[in-house]
Write a protein that binds this DNA or RNA. Structure first.
Length: 424
RNA sequence: GCGAGCGUCGCCAAGUGGUUAAGGCAGUGGAUUGUGGUUCCACCAUUCGUGGGUUCAAGUCCCAUCGUUCGCCCCA
């Protein structure tokens, strides 16, 4: 009974679930349009060194989670683990900076990371994300955050926390890094194993360790916010001020350190308390150094990515609205079955949704299925109806039934559409 | 990559070494040759993720493997 299964960490999105995906996608498109963002589609795989240089070799994403393979031409390629690097590459490669100032872009698609699967985390997962390239203005940071919050609100997802931090510019970070190492070194032996390991490699990451003992030590550690230079402080201040103007509440969390190396200044996450361990549904921030690092002209940028699977999980916790079909067509008898196909198609041509019963079984069985199909009404077509060019319309919610000329349904569409609305 | 749990029909499950693998939902047929949502009856796993082992006997114990869940790491 096993046979071939979907590969580990991948899964099928079945019709039952796909409505949620479509809802997210269409709401996202609408939000992006209102904010004047345009879609960009980049390849699913890239040269491996794009990610090594862009994301950072010290990160876990690059160090142990990449799907890397050698193709037949002996090139090292990698399935994209995130979307920003590819967008940045495209921006440089196609000289999008020359196309007049700021580029506002969005993307959505499958990403790949070789990780241990658990709830809200797959090896193939899907993100929708936005990037603003070419603006250092704090209003750009606020714009993308506003967009994320708007999208989540239109989806009816509340109960969220926006965590905000600034990781400063390169200099700020270097000074803070030194201070943090100085502070932590005396405690080295009391840190958990992972954190000890990171002390030299990536000390900032120790800040969001979940180990209680490490957290205790971190509590009294110096805060990055005290190490921001005047410019960084000003930028962060303006972001907060503007968020407040817009009525978007947030929590400053000085130990919020995003995983990827390219972040500068603003870092943020939107979290839900309903997702267990994988609580972040949206993560992003500013990455002023990335384009430069990839060989383009120094270009400030800011963006975020949302995890579609996690959004779907949240939507599923809320109520479900099953897709309704207008008519279920039950027919019996050779003539009726044959003409039923023609009639159903005529109904579809004027805009109705029609599901045809293909079983050929008795009317009581077909009615039973009509009931379960969720249709508003069952159309019954038998020998008698064929003779009179009529059809029985049985409203499934009330059991009321009427005899109607077939042509009535096809010509008085507005009237029937209204009746269908009343009998949902 | 590390730690723990789980894997019996399409779905939810009982079963805790003794030989016939409960039950519910769904499905199919009938009671009802053209009228559903209620009811009643019947049918629906030679087999317990897979492979190997222990035993007179294994869904039940052991090992391996695959998948999954939860936590860690990390992240969306």
């Amino acid at each position: 009974m096993v046979g071939i299964q979907a590969a580990r960490g991948t899964r099928d999105i079945l019709p039952e679930e796909v409505g949620y995906w479509q809802q997210i996608e269409s709401n996202a498109r609408d939000i992006f349009r209102r904010f004047a963002y345009r879609e960009i589609r980049t390849p699913v795989f890239e040269q491996t060194n794009l990610f090594e240089r862009g994301i950072g070799e010290a990160t876990d994403v690059v160090g142990k989670e990449m799907y890397t393979f050698i193709d037949r031409g002996d090139r090292s390629l990698t399935l994209r683990p995130e979307g920003t690097a590819g967008v940045a590459r495209a921006y440089i490669e196609h000289h999008l900076s020359a196309m007049g100032g700021i580029q506002r872009l969005w993307y959505s698609g499958a990403m790949f990371r070789y990780e241990r699967p658990q709830a809200g985390r797959q090896r193939q997962f899907h993100q929708v994300g936005v990037e603003v390239l070419g603006s250092a203005d704090p209003r750009a940071d606020v714009e993308v955050i506003t967009m994320a919050v708007s999208l989540l609100n239109t989806l009816g997802i509340y109960d969220l926390t926006l965590a905000l931090n600034s990781v400063g510019d390169g200099d700020d970070r270097n000074r803070y890094r030194t201070a943090l190492i100085d502070y932590l070194t005396p405690f080295q032996s009391h840190l958990d194993e992972d954190s000890q390991d990171r002390l030299l490699r990536n000390p900032l990451r120790i800040l969001d360790s979940k180990n209680t003992k490490t957290q205790e030590i971190i509590r009294h550690a110096p805060s990055i916010l005290d190490y921001l230079g005047a410019q960084s402080r000003h930028h962060f201040h303006q972001v907060q001020e503007s968020l407040t103007d817009l009525g978007i509440s947030y929590t400053v969390n000085p130990s919020l350190v995003r995983g990827l190396d390219y972040y500068t200044h603003t870092a943020f996450e939107i979290q839900s308390s309903h997702l267990g361990s994988q609580s972040t549904i949206c993560g992003g921030g500013r990455y002023d150094g990335l384009i430069d690092q990839l060989g383009g002209d120094s270009t400030p940028a800011v963006g975020w990515a949302m995890g579609m699977e996690r959004l779907v999980l949240l939507l599923q916790l809320q109520s479900i609205s099953p897709t309704k079909i207008d008519f279920y067509l039950a027919s019996k008898g050779q003539q009726a079955e044959r003409q039923g196909m023609v009639f159903a198609q005529a109904l579809r041509n004027v805009g109705f949704g029609v599901e045809v019963d293909l079983s050929g079984s008795a009317f009581n069985k077909q009615l039973k299925r009509a009931d379960r199909s969720g249709a508003s009404a069952c159309l019954i077509l038998g020998d008698g109806e064929i003779e009179h060019q009529s059809v029985q319309v049985k409203w499934l919610a009330t059991g009321n039934q009427e005899t109607v000329n077939q042509s009535d349904l096809l010509t008085q569409v507005d009237y029937w559409r209204q009746r269908l609305g009343e009998n949902m």
